[in-house]
Design a binder for these strands. Sequence first.
DNA 1: TAGAATACGGACCCCGGGTCCGTTTCGTTT
DNA 2: AAACGAAACGGACCCGGGGTCCGTATTCTA
Lengths: 202, 202
Amino acid sequence: MPERRPRKDAVRNREAVLSAADALFARGESPEDVTMADIAAAAGVGKGTLFRAFGDRAGLLRALYEARLEPIVEAVETGPPPLGPATPPHQRVPALLDAIVCFKLDNRRLALALEETGSGSPYRAEHYERWHSLLRAVLEQIPGLADSDFTAHALLAATRADLVERLVGQEGVPRERLRAQLAGFVARVVDSRPSQGPAASN
Amino acid sequence: MPERRPRKDAVRNREAVLSAADALFARGESPEDVTMADIAAAAGVGKGTLFRAFGDRAGLLRALYEARLEPIVEAVETGPPPLGPATPPHQRVPALLDAIVCFKLDNRRLALALEETGSGSPYRAEHYERWHSLLRAVLEQIPGLADSDFTAHALLAATRADLVERLVGQEGVPRERLRAQLAGFVARVVDSRPSQGPAASN
DNA sequence: TAGAATACGGACCCCGGGTCCGTTTCGTTT
DNA sequence: AAACGAAACGGACCCGGGGTCCGTATTCTA
């Protein structure tokens, strides 16, 4: 019985921190000047508590992110089409990317904060692996599509938080337009036939 | 004449700092633990000097980056095909992206450091604007390609430093293979014909 | 209800970016 | 060549934020 369930105040505080952080990130401003101390204060909790519960800044961000992501993950893994596993590949790929970009639109600050924090890139985050391997697997089932591994990376790169932030936050591209553009891009990648054009030979 | 040319020791030191930083970043290790103090020490210079010359960390990185980038910029702006302005669009696009990815391959650490430092994303860096607007302009000349603005962003996203770093540094993808994969991806985007698939209507 | 186990919290440490200013070097002027 | 003002030097210093430590408070167990 090495499993000892946590104390009640521990879970209460954990909850408090999570929602406080959530609120702070949502409240405009760039994520890098939401400090750990701020979060602790907003949650009515000491810094020690905060770090014990989440390890470090990245850990907290990750926890927040995963929590928000959960419904989508579920929809993808066990839900109905067009996100669920029963969807035919050439339809599921755009659906997946649309879901991802919508998620980033709804959680801009948070996603941004996560991609900025610790190790900078999202490529260390565990959830990236999941998206990538899933997308890769689905792409693989589309005939005539080589390099599904790289293609998955490249498509995911088009949904990166800072790009979304730039387009929506700074250039003022409306949400639906961004979705449409991404959809168009994905379609060009996925639906393209070899074409007779001068194919790259090396 | 408000233009007063700088003193001799100033330029000498600037040079020293630049090459010291260059060396330090080249010397393996992740860029975030090359500190400003390290660079100053390696250049045999005080921190004050370093900050006076470049403003801040981002400024130094940018200066290094621009210096390295210069030959490529020139090749693009005034050089012969396939990079120069005389190249037909559907050939120039892959050439541009190949040049960019090669550059990032040759300057992995530096590019990484730049994209990580200050404001995180490359989207604040001035050179990104240049690449993007150029690529956008070239894409615009390709018939049947809508959303050239977004497409330019998405293609550039596929060459981002941290992605390159991951593929080459961690997954061990060889240089030529990465180039080929990128070329393939670009070709799918650029050479694709509308296809009969369900086009996005909004 | 006593005692051990666990969590709390904020003072504290560390480290890195950035600043300040007394000192030094440069270049110009007579 | 000497001297003087301007510009640059450099390292001690400041500041802010992430992360730690440990005496104290709370919760669980017997």
